[in-house]
Design a protein around this nucleic acid. Structure first.
Length: 347
DNA sequence: GTTTGACCTGG
DNA sequence: CAGGTCAAA
């Protein structure tokens, strides 16, 4: 019955031109986002954009166009859209509340929404060219690693996802995040044939409730239960509107934002850098995990081979090295090298 | 200001 | 051990 009702509504879909500068696989499945799933026999990606829209994306055979379909576009899910950080000189997308009469549910609105999430406003060819000129090793890798993009992601989802990521494996990280969404998120789309019911990521205020920590413990979150709850509570205690904090973090200089984030329990240098890079538009942030550490050891800083593990000092050194080599978007260059190092993307 | 272990849980 | 963090040397 429900299917019939949906079918009567106009389908929201269209194509987005990418100039060959986007690989969905390398972008959605390279460890920056944890909730994108491959469906329809491996052709379509389904995920949530802006924490409100369930979107299906398909890379076209020409590699230069993306087909999108908003699966829950007929629902009234636009009322609580977050306001994303404004990028200087770039017009921020309007939310439905401030769309001054313009219909938010038209094709232009959605293609902009998705383009914004995928950061398609950034010319990736120029960046790759620049990085390749300043580093032969990058150049050699980049020719087989085109279209890696740093997504413009939701703050709360990035924060809590990467709190879950520490000292943990990808499989369990994804399961934990999915559990968070199912238990504390809102229903965005029901009965997807392969994925079931799709939820939003929880509000920070919801995760700040006292019952959360014991509940998460029971769900197998271990010591991260306290990290999640206490971080949420810390934010809510200080800010009436948690989203406001993320805007402030995006406005302040990278080093200050990083320092502020690290006051949260479960957020150290690496997690703070992930949030800064992926959710706060601080593209000079270089998250150094064990993968990047090994890349740095073998490719750039051989004297670090004597180090058994990352120290605060070597962490800083690697980040600074990347910034000096690749410039203000060093975090993006790191993302490309990181992606190339992932097992699933090796030739 | 550095460096070392323990740490929930599951494959 | 796994895409670190925390607290105690």
């Amino acid at each position: 019955m429900r299917q019939t009702v949906k079918a009567l509504k106009p389908m929201i879909e269209g194509f987005i031109e990418t100039n060959g500068e986007l690989s969905l696989k390398r972008t959605l499945k390279s460890g920056q986002a944890f909730r994108w799933r491959l469906t329809n026999d491996g052709t379509d990606w389904v995920g949530v954009v802006r924490n409100t829209h369930v979107v299906q994306l398909t890379q076209q055979p020409d590699g230069k166009h993306i087909h999108y379909r908003v699966l829950n576009g007929h629902e009234d899910n636009d009322h609580n859209q977050e306001i994303k950080p404004t990028v200087k000189g770039r017009k921020r997308l309007k939310t439905s509340d401030e769309s001054d009469g313009e219909n938010p549910k038209d094709q232009y609105f959605y293609s902009q929404l998705i383009s914004d999430y995928l950061r398609l406003d950034v010319n990736l060819t120029d960046l790759y060219d620049k990085w390749s000129k300043s580093d032969d090793k990058f150049a050699a890798i980049a020719v087989n690693m085109s279209g890696v993009r740093v997504l413009r992601q939701n703050f709360a989802e990035t924060l809590f996802s990467f709190i879950c990521s520490s000292n943990n494996n990808i499989n369990r990280i994804e399961k934990m995040i999915e559990t968070l969404c199912q238990k504390y998120g809102k229903v965005l789309y029901e009965s997807h044939p392969e994925l079931g019911t799709i939820h939003s990521f929880p509000e920070i205020t919801r995760l700040a409730e006292e019952s959360v920590e014991p509940e998460l413990k029971k769900l197998g979150f271990g010591y991260r239960s306290a990290f999640i709850h206490r971080s949420a509570k810390t934010i809510c205690d200080e800010y009436k509107c948690p989203e406001k904090w993320s805007q402030e973090l995006a406005q302040m200089p990278y080093s200050e934002a990083r320092q502020a984030l690290q006051r949260l329990p479960g957020v150290g240098p690496k997690v703070a850098d992930c949030i800064a890079l992926m959710a706060l538009n601080h593209l000079e942030s270089v998250p150094v995990d064990v993968h990047v550490f090994k890349i740095a050891q073998h490719m750039y800083l051989p004297h670090l081979k004597k180090n058994k593990s990352l120290t605060h000092k070597s962490y800083q050194e690697i980040g600074d090295f990347f910034r000096s080599k690749f410039g203000p978007n060093a975090g993006w260059a790191q993302a490309v090298l990181f992606c190339a190092d992932l097992k699933q993307f090796k030739q």
